[in-house]
Design a binder for these strands. Structure first.
Lengths: 221, 221
DNA sequence: CATTAATAGATAAATATTTATCAATAAAAG
DNA sequence: CTTTTATTGATAAATATTTATCTATTAATG
């Protein structure tokens, strides 16, 4: 049952770790462009600033198809564009958010998403005191309208920020109406049929890495 | 410059992917314990429910030192305990949270952390209308008191939920006062001296995986 | 009480990912 | 104009991670 990592499609499959690093380069390059713009940048420089290996940066960039020039490196604007296109961030994708709690509010208010081609159109919630409100320019609608809205708009991405207890139920509602990908922030595994994408954001996993590393650090003297 | 993955310490180094999966098993087992308790569980059952491979589950559990019994599997309570101890979640670690925006509120209100041995003691912010408030039983204190509080309490973990623009400055303040590990939710890379742990929570990385997989899914017909 | 089947545990193979080395290229320096 | 150097791009090696196979154990069954 089930496969691992590696995202395969038409061309070369791309390792998931690479995919996760590309946005880091992207954020870095955009910041650089604002704070100390330069025409060219080398993998060595990127690696130095981000604290990883130049070879890895080069390998990662290879996947995007960006072309560098010996002795000077990549043209920053071209590199940004290459990453954008490669990740599909050049054209905007719309999404609905389900569950307008604190986390939902945080995501609604996060300005960064538009740089990544993600536009949250509206939020849904079941609590009467939230419905009708507008948060960061986005309406909070009653959750019972969700399926209908998904059908009418053809939106494919659902961001699930509801409590664990109703996560599966809400996921089912979204999938039934045509959602193809769920970004799941609920601390519970949700079951979906084959062909549906779930990206599970699990704080506990990150905390585990942190805890373990801290424990080792504190133990070593 | 810089190494990859693999967390090494006294005993066998543990692969980071394993470390990230253990909390998923942990959440699953706890839920199981509540909803349909049973004395024993096999790797095959866990794998089936979580949609991965039994062999991987077995291998992962091996790291925790949990002992199973042929024909029946692991005793659920023992397995939970083994994971807890292995991750260091059996005794509580205290943390401060810096940046009481929506995301900060969301983390302050998240009840799950106590299961993972993390206790957020207080939050810090610079905005006058937040200071003094109490959120989910946690006080919001002025950020200028942060260094002193870290020194006095000896707290080692800082959770950084401030805007990107002041992330580095706040990180420096924390480190100067003795913080050893930073859980960074700001969408920017922060620089820290050697020996300090940074766990960077990057939404863009997850979104990249989601975007790419969705793009491939939608392209394939 | 013997046999069967399910399972953990151990070992081995396969695959994915990272890192290193080498060759080609173009800018810079002499 | 030639040489040197920094860099990408290509190829290869090393390492980490996942998956498979085999063995031993123990519960269940007849």
């Amino acid at each position: 049952m089930a496969k691992q990592s590696m995202i395969k499609g038409a061309s070369k499959p791309i390792p998931e770790p690479v995919l996760r690093r590309l946005p880091v380069y992207y954020q870095y390059l955009r910041k650089l462009n604002l704070e100390s713009p330069r025409e060219y940048i080398s993998c060595a420089k990127i690696a130095e600033d981000l604290n990883n290996l130049a070879i890895q940066v080069r390998k990662d960039m290879e996947f995007t198809g960006a072309q560098g020039r010996p002795k000077v490196g990549y043209r920053v604007t071209e590199l940004l564009k290459a990453i954008e296109i490669f990740l599909g961030w050049d054209n905007t994708t719309e999404a609905y958010l389900v569950g307008a709690g604190n986390l939902g509010f945080a995501l609604l208010g996060y300005q960064g998403f538009k740089d990544y081609g993600l536009n949250i159109i509206a939020a849904f919630d079941s609590s009467a005191d939230k419905i009708g409100r507008e948060v960061y320019g986005k309406k909070i609608l009653p959750v019972k309208k969700l399926p209908d809205m998904i059908r009418r708009t053809g939106i494919k991405i659902g961001i699930l920020t509801a409590p664990a207890s109703c996560a599966q139920e809400l996921a089912d509602a979204m999938l039934g109406a045509g959602i193809k990908a769920i970004w799941n922030f609920a601390p519970v595994k949700i079951s979906v049929p084959a062909g549906i994408i779930v990206q599970h954001e699990n704080l506990a996993s990150s905390l585990a890495v942190l805890s373990k590393r801290l424990a080792l650090l504190l133990a070593e003297r």
